[in-house]
Simulated scan of single mutants.
Amino acid sequence: MSLQVLAVHTYNYGTTANCYRLGQTVSETDETIATEAQFTNGAVAYKLAADSSDPTATTQWGQTFGTDTYPVLGGAKVYCVEGYYHNHNDSCAACNDPGKPDKAGDTYQIASYENLLWFAKLANGTLMQGMPAKPAANAVLMQAIDITVDTVDTVGKRWPGIGTSDNPYNGRFNGNGYTVTLKGADVSTAATKRRR
């Protein structure tokens, strides 16, 4: 795959900022080296727009997935959810999900059922279409959580469990002295079905 050139650089006697280059490290420049994957997956477009010195400018860096193979001026805004770059508007459910837990370092802080459900979707790969599963994600309980499961739980979703047969959970889940209680379901049957 070949990428079109965003800029030509010969010599730089000043300081460059917010500049990304495909290739090997060159010690005499201030450019940030990016891989071809980072140019094509939206990471560079996201960083260019986020690092813009003028966020009110009418033309920003962007990238329309499925159309642009690299960042372009005036391209679609690129959003990032847990390292997954995508095009959505400001009402993107994955970006603005009220259930998204706080994060301390690499560990999600689970303080509610909604946080736990968001985390399960992240681990299972069902948070957003096209987003890969993150079965190695880490979490810590911040308080006890009761889940009542009938046919449908309180927010209209069945409890999915954390981990699937395709993506078994292998992260660290620290109970922190608290419990998650699942009420109204045959937990042993659910666990047996998941192990098969």
Results as ranks from 00 to 15, higher is better:
residue 104 A to M: 03
residue 173 F to L: 13
residue 139 A to K: 08
residue 116 L to P: 04
residue 50 A to H: 07
residue 83 G to I: 05
residue 140 V to A: 14
residue 153 D to F: 01
residue 141 L to P: 04
residue 109 Q to I: 12
residue 92 C to T: 01
residue 147 I to H: 08
residue 140 V to K: 15
residue 89 N to S: 14
residue 109 Q to S: 01
residue 110 I to R: 11
residue 148 T to Y: 14
residue 83 G to M: 06
residue 60 Q to A: 13
residue 144 A to S: 15
residue 55 P to S: 11
residue 91 S to P: 00
residue 151 T to R: 10
residue 57 A to S: 15
residue 116 L to W: 11
residue 41 N to Y: 04
residue 139 A to D: 06
residue 61 W to T: 06
residue 72 V to I: 13
residue 175 G to S: 07
residue 142 M to C: 05
residue 167 N to V: 00
residue 38 Q to G: 05
residue 57 A to D: 12
residue 127 L to I: 05
residue 142 M to R: 13
residue 67 T to D: 04
residue 170 N to T: 10
residue 133 A to V: 07
residue 55 P to G: 07
residue 161 G to F: 05
residue 58 T to N: 13
residue 161 G to V: 09
residue 104 A to Y: 02
residue 88 H to D: 15
residue 104 A to H: 03
residue 40 T to G: 01
residue 74 G to W: 09
residue 113 Y to L: 12
residue 172 R to Q: 14
residue 169 Y to T: 06
residue 57 A to I: 01
residue 49 A to Y: 02
residue 157 K to N: 08
residue 150 D to R: 08
residue 131 M to C: 05
residue 94 A to Q: 07
residue 95 C to E: 10
residue 48 L to V: 09
residue 103 K to F: 03
residue 134 K to N: 07
residue 136 A to L: 03
residue 133 A to G: 07
residue 133 A to M: 04
residue 88 H to Q: 10
residue 147 I to E: 06
residue 95 C to I: 10
residue 167 N to R: 00
residue 115 N to P: 03
residue 129 Q to W: 00
residue 66 G to C: 12
residue 135 P to R: 05
residue 126 T to C: 06
residue 105 G to M: 07
residue 113 Y to I: 01
residue 102 D to F: 05
residue 163 G to R: 00
residue 124 N to W: 10
residue 138 N to C: 06
residue 94 A to P: 03
residue 123 A to K: 00
residue 118 W to K: 07
residue 57 A to Y: 02
residue 118 W to F: 12
residue 45 A to W: 05
residue 63 Q to A: 08
residue 141 L to I: 11
residue 81 V to R: 13
residue 142 M to F: 00
residue 52 S to L: 01
residue 96 N to R: 12
residue 51 D to M: 09
residue 58 T to Q: 13
residue 89 N to T: 14
residue 110 I to N: 08
residue 156 G to E: 12
residue 136 A to R: 03
residue 95 C to D: 12
residue 174 N to S: 12
residue 160 P to K: 02
residue 105 G to N: 09
residue 146 D to K: 14
residue 147 I to R: 06
residue 142 M to I: 11
residue 116 L to F: 14
residue 156 G to D: 11
residue 118 W to Y: 15
residue 57 A to W: 01
residue 47 K to A: 15
residue 80 C to K: 13
residue 103 K to A: 02
residue 134 K to I: 00
residue 147 I to L: 15
residue 98 P to M: 01
residue 152 V to G: 02
residue 151 T to A: 13
residue 69 T to Y: 03
residue 156 G to L: 12
residue 99 G to K: 10
residue 101 P to N: 08
residue 116 L to A: 13
residue 96 N to W: 04
residue 107 T to N: 03
residue 46 Y to L: 01
residue 83 G to A: 07
residue 106 D to A: 14
residue 67 T to F: 03
